[in-house]
Design a protein around this nucleic acid. Structure first.
Length: 422
DNA sequence: TCTGGGGTCCTAGGACCC
DNA sequence: TCTGGGGTCCTAGGACCC
């Protein structure tokens, strides 16, 4: 989709069309009610953390782009209008555009909120013109249903389609065959290959490789020497436009997480209360997400970002999957104790992984409660996991023992000295 | 006043098992 | 006394993507 979040906002506020608009920043409580007509928040007025998630093409003309810090963007384009993201609305429009596509071509792989792969193999008419007519139809149907434009690439595989879709943005349609690789793909920067990011492209550059064509010309053994067997071989194949990955129409989620960057860095000791609130809130949100989506998870993890932007993670795998906020909170709390807490923090996150469906899991515990000790793979883990369970089971001093908001927090969660059965 | 939030996949070492 | 080869699971970090 073209500038998806911004385009969705322009559907609601059509009088902003043609103006530089960026989406990003924190939502202020009253902002959405009054609407951007009132006050017209400008980038120059913004003070605080945050990045641009989407910018209209008018704003991009000033050099701003997604991922750029808002303060930096304000310097480039102070008059751009700034709208906070409304993910509920974007998800609604996302479902709508995918449904519109499915009316014509139902074999769809989800690639996030604003992107899909479509397998057109079995769509009538693709063979006639390589899919050009079908592409026109898809774009028309999508615009008819949603009022939004998109950019389409139609080629023999996902790798090439992804690249092709970006050649004619916005509102583009590019149809390519293998015979076009030399002329259309090889001149492009290697970075355009999905999977080659900033690190890999920098390493390629040190080898004198800038374009996909240059990558294709290099002997695969050289790539394998520098990037390893797997990545090296893949780089070679990709440069030649070869990719046999199927369009995958369904996949189970691997993890569910919540994280937040604070408006100001918080000190683990001085701001303990506030951090504890936030920490528990994240656990409750993750638990809600799990429950709403029907999953339970065994691996509970935390993520911390220090003021210098270095990031650490810790996780812990329980014997049984859970979606209980109190259990997640207790386990995440014990993870927290394994992390240095001297420097200020800018971000805190909670993650639950090793997911399984809640309904399938109910009667199939990983191990029954009385086997917890005997089946523990590692003594140290058994102790840690049992600690988490014990804490969750202890009501503690709170009035409402089921209210995880009242659990002890941060440093207050001490390892259990007693190792009796809970 | 730099740098969001939600994800996936890969690697690598250690523990442990057969 | 010294030491295989295969495998799984767990953990931490990092690259990358939308």
């Amino acid at each position: 989709m073209d500038a998806f979040y911004a385009s969705v906002e322009l559907l609601r506020y059509p009088h902003l069309r043609g103006l530089p608009v960026v989406i990003g920043g924190r939502r202020r409580s009253t902002e959405r009610d009054s609407g951007p007509q009132v006050g017209l928040p400008r980038l120059r007025d913004y003070a605080g953390r945050g990045v641009i998630t989407t910018a209209t093409y008018e704003a991009r003309a000033f050099g701003v782009h997604s991922g750029m810090g808002l303060m930096k963007a304000a310097a480039l384009c102070p008059d751009a209008l700034l709208l906070p993201a409304d993910f509920d609305e974007y998800r609604r429009m996302s479902r709508m555009f995918k449904a519109a596509v499915a009316e014509i071509a139902p074999v769809i792989e989800d690639r996030g909120i604003d992107e899909i792969y479509i397998d057109l193999t079995d769509c009538p008419g693709v063979q006639n013109d390589g899919g050009h007519t079908l592409g026109v139809q898809l774009k028309a149907r999508l615009h008819e249903r949603c009022g939004l434009t998109c950019s389409v690439g139609i080629t023999p595989n996902k790798l090439l389609s992804k690249i092709a879709s970006e050649l004619d943005k916005p509102d583009g349609l590019t149809v390519l065959d293998t015979g076009d690789i030399r002329s259309r793909i090889w001149p492009l920067a290697a970075r355009r290959i999905n999977g080659i990011g900033p690190k890999a492209s920098a390493r390629l550059e040190t080898l004198g490789i800038r374009t996909i064509g240059e990558l294709a010309a290099v002997p695969p053994t050289l790539l394998i020497d520098h990037f390893g067997r797997s990545v090296g071989a893949w780089l070679h194949e990709a440069a030649h436009g070869r990719d046999d990955r199927p369009v995958v129409t369904y996949s189970e989620p691997r993890s569910i997480s919540r994280e937040t960057t604070f408006e100001h860095d918080l000190h683990p000791r001085r701001d303990r209360e506030r951090l504890s609130e936030i920490f528990t809130e994240l656990c409750v949100k993750v638990a809600d997400d799990l429950r709403r989506k029907g999953y339970v998870g065994r691996t509970i993890g935390i993520k911390l970002r220090y003021e210098d932007f270095t990031t650490v993670t810790r996780d812990q795998t329980l014997h049984e999957a859970t979606a209980e906020a109190a259990l997640i909170r207790a386990s995440a709390g014990s993870c927290l104790k394994r992390v240095p807490l001297e420097r200020k923090l800018r971000l805190l996150g909670v993650r639950v992984g090793t997911l399984s469906r809640a309904d399938q899991n109910a009667h199939l515990p990983k191990s029954s409660p009385d086997q917890v000790e005997s089946t523990a793979r590692y003594p140290s883990d058994a102790k840690r996991v049992r600690t988490a369970v014990l804490h969750a089971a202890e009501p503690g001093p709170a009035d409402d023992p089921t209210d995880v908001r009242q659990l002890p927090l941060f440093s207050a969660l001490k390892p259990s000295a007693t190792d009796s059965r809970g």
